[in-house]
Design a protein around this nucleic acid. Structure first.
Lengths: 330, 330
DNA sequence: ATCTCGTTTGCTACCGGTAGCAAAAACTAT
DNA sequence: ATAGTTTTTGCTACCGGTAGCAAACGAGAT
């Protein structure tokens, strides 16, 4: 059975199709009588306005593309949950785009724009800033936002956790606990993502203790990559030379590191090596991990991007303060 | 700068807009010369066809709504990853819909249909079958599919892991290990979702050992709910009366149960209580959990739904065989 | 040079809505 | 009852493509 259109309902109700449309357009001028007639006819024919046609005419799809390249990070799931819920509350809907080897950022952005999305959100994706300056993207029409990651890109505001404050809090906590040989596990070195947290942490130790920061790079931002990097480090470094606290750029890396430290090398956490993460992913609270970490203010961050893309807030980069969560790993 | 349309390119290239369209329609009749002219003009104006307009005319959006109500289950993430990647490989895109207290299935389905999606996939959502028989959904136009869950719904094929085989394999393994006081932790009792695995497991013990199955119901399918349910059970049951193996309907529940069993009640796994999950979520492999579980054939399942929705495969319920993964928890 | 035949191009009508103007209807005031 | 005002309804044009027919074109045969 073919779907009913406004025209069909119009005939059924004995009015013009524009009157039908008005019955479905809040705040438009229509008598109660006509509206009731139309609604009855619509109900009977199971009519619902075609949002595609509406979008074509209004130039608004109420669709937002959400680009994710980092499904290995379990914290993406609560982020997606919060984001989709908040979008839906505003009548928007998320197109989830998986950035991977077969489908890169350029591809994704161009396709999203062809679909006329109202905005594009880069959800913590590990692209290089240069990527977005690609000529092919010239005249891109959909406003872009970077969520949960820094961005130096001209005209692309970022909403993320305030790294300065976060690192200061974490550092203070670690000093109080008496750690003095710090290490930092970051993601792929080539990415500017890493910069903020790593640079801050490095400067913190230089300033406070005139200490150098040992840096360990993981291949990706995932549990496996974190395990792999930790393994490489522990294998090649004799016990006496090791760091006494390892800060990981995110919880995913920290989980992997913890697994290897405890299970493969039989080291005690935090006595032999303390570990700190970043995100406060669900499993960080599990007694199996008990990870000290820094909670990203997910809801506030999501609300901020959405306010921006709705034009209810100035489109500029903001950093929102998170919260240190101390657990057994330090 | 307003986005260029076929008309603009036509003027630039000195042809009609239909010739422009043909240059972008593979297999249509156009000379190399015209095509080159059009492509050059298009390049210059940064033209890309408007997929919205195309969808309106062709009645195909290449969009699939994916409904998820279960973000508390970490295994949803790899599922989403696989699903989005597979859809994108076929030129489709996923609209991720978050089903929650403010946005129920009916809502989601109606909205998806208004957006003219090509299909709706219910990704392991815990709806009641009756929901989908709601009159409001009468004449629904988008084909629906249930993924990673059973479905008894008329006309809605399900693609899931073969429960019969899975439970038989798990049961056999548990018998070999000598367990004889089985328990089963399921999700909300009111949902038929639970039925398959629970019923099978129950029948298995009845048949093989003439043993009754102890059943524990969790409120939701999440780590927290699993922890909560395990806590309630262990608190009220003296050590001597407890089950010696607890099968959980999915890994999320099992993680919660493991945390409580080990950390709160200081019991040994598997010596005091063995635990089995279902899904083979990423953390099941972590040495912190070491969970024996049953791996769902995610890729095969995803491929099967996609083949169905593309019409390349008969639209009937299929069960695909998974794989038992034995780890330290049994 | 003329006639085919097949290819290429342009055209009308349409997908299902929206915007905003103009005509019609209903209401108010005199 | 009539004129003036406001509300409601219908209309044309349009959003940017697609479908499929008809005209124009070009090459080969006569």
């Amino acid at each position: 059975m073919k779907r009913a259109t406004a025209q069909h309902v119009a005939i059924e109700a004995g009015v013009s199709k524009w009157t039908v449309i008005r019955a479905f357009t809040p705040g438009s001028s229509i008598t109660e009588v006509s509206k009731a007639k139309v609604l009855a006819a619509a109900e009977k024919l199971n009519y619902r306005p075609n949002l595609l046609a509406r979008s074509l005419a209004t130039n608004l799809t109420h669709q937002v593309a959400v680009l994710v390249d980092d499904f290995g990070n379990p914290h993406k799931l609560p982020f997606l949950e919060t984001l989709t819920a908040a979008l839906q509350a505003k009548g928007l809907v998320a197109i989830l785009v998986n950035i991977n080897d077969h489908y890169n950022h350029i591809h994704a952005i161009l396709n999203a724009e062809q679909r006329q999305v109202d905005a594009i959100i880069l959800l913590g994706t590990a692209f290089r800033d240069e990527t977005l300056n690609d000529r092919k993207l010239g005249g891109g029409s959909a406003p872009m936002f970077v969520l949960a990651r820094d961005s130096q890109i001209e005209g692309v505001p970022a909403v993320s956790c305030d790294t300065d404050v976060a690192i200061a809090e974490i550092g203070k906590h670690l000093l109080e606990r008496g750690y003095h040989r710090p290490g930092f596990m970051c993601g792929p070195r080539t990415l500017s993502t890493a910069l903020g947290r790593r640079r801050n942490f490095k400067e913190f130790w230089r300033r406070e203790r005139d200490t150098d920061l040992l840096e360990i790079a993981a291949d990706r931002y995932s549990v496996d990559a974190g395990a792999e990097a930790a393994r490489r480090y522990l294998e090649k470094t004799p016990a006496t030379d090791r760091v006494d606290v390892l800060m990981c750029e995110n919880d995913a890396l920290a989980f992997g590191a913890l697994d290897v430290i405890r299970s493969e090398f039989k080291l005690r956490v935090p006595e032999d090596i303390a570990v700190v993460g970043f995100d406060n992913a669900a499993f960080a609270a599990s007694p199996s991990y008990g990870l000290t970490t820094y909670e990203q203010p997910v809801s506030e961050m999501v609300d901020a991007v959405i306010a921006m893309l709705l034009g209810q807030r100035e489109k500029i980069t903001v950093n929102i303060r998170g919260r240190l969560v101390v657990r057994a790993s330090t």
